[in-house]
Write a protein that binds this DNA or RNA. Structure first.
Lengths: 187, 187
DNA sequence: GTCTATAGTTGGATAGAC
DNA sequence: GTCTATCCAACTATAGAC
């Protein structure tokens, strides 16, 4: 792993615990057993760390979404794929995902605009899949806004739940979450 | 409204938007059309603002929970009451609730310990109600942890959803959320 | 109760030696 | 690539005049 990747990984851990604004470059350097000045040989500044962490994850989601959109499946199966997408990213990139969810508003300039754009597009795509499911009679006829809100709230919180749980509890989650989220939607 | 309450209200708005660490006493003073030094005639410091905002809301939740525990109702009705508790607090104290959910880790000393204690107790009580519902055969037999996680994730996110919505969409939420969250739990 | 002035600390970032 | 030393801006909070 390159030095830059080590810095990004360590920063993700610290930002997750204390939040972007509360972590100093000196804190980050200390956690890496170096001095703050040395960090700048690998990254241009604190903002670069934040934007790399967040935009990488954001692109994981939009990449996953475009795969799901291309599936030749009904809305129900697509919703299942999206649940798995969220679980898999939460498992493989827990810290960076936490940073994205809690510190995106500290992005500045272009990266901020980019993130907001990606997030809006993701929500639009998610909503379209749910709407299609309702039109086709796969899902109950209720407010799409309410369904979208409830599903996304749960999916976006998985990262909070995962680090506290055993592998067997995570297996339960993978098994039961599609049921729990989609059962209430069936006609 | 006393000057202190005005300060707390304004602080809640700013903390919600930018996070506790990113808001300075100068920012807060400017938003109140005064100088930073003048704030200290009303509050002892930045930490006091944070702890008052957060612990007030935390006590709203524990107070609500103790009412629900005393209800002479089945688990299903109690769960419904808890959903309403979350919706009502999210409606009446949107900003302070946002601060509690995102900035509690910036509490220091006693208030931090107090908040963590209240939150743990709330989750224990919530879990006990769900477990009781499963034992009595009101709810499906699935992992309580998964149900608790999914319900609390949605309920704790309501404050994010509310400011973007019209009164009629909020009515939909009030009407449909109990259904959506509890339907998947029925046997 | 609000102000100006400022103390005392800490932040991100750079310069230049090794 | 890491260090020491340092710049300078910004932070919380206090002192004391009005």
């Amino acid at each position: 792993m390159t030095r830059k990747k080590q810095i990004l990984k360590t920063a993700a851990q610290l930002f997750k615990e204390r939040g972007y604004s509360a972590v100093t470059m000196r804190d980050l350097a200390a956690a890496m057993d170096m001095k703050a000045a040395s960090l700048y040989n690998h990254i241009s500044g604190k903002q670069e760390i934040l934007s790399v962490l967040i935009l990488d994850i954001a692109h994981e989601f939009t990449g996953g979404m475009s795969m799901v959109k291309d599936e030749d499946n009904a809305a129900f199966a697509k919703a299942e794929s999206l649940i798995n997408l969220h679980i898999n990213i939460a498992l493989s990139h827990t810290d960076a995902l936490a940073v994205m969810n809690t510190d995106w508003m500290h992005l500045e300039g272009r990266p901020y605009e980019e993130y907001v754009k990606l997030r809006k597009q993701y929500e639009r795509d998610f909503k379209a899949i749910l709407e299609h499911g309702i039109q086709q009679g796969e899902f109950k006829s209720m407010s799409v806004e309410t369904i979208l809100f409830s599903m996304l709230s749960t999916l976006r919180s998985i990262y909070l739940w995962i680090p506290r749980k055993s592998p067997s509890e995570i297996k339960s989650l993978k098994l039961e979450l599609p049921d729990l989220l989609l059962e209430g939607l069936k006609c």
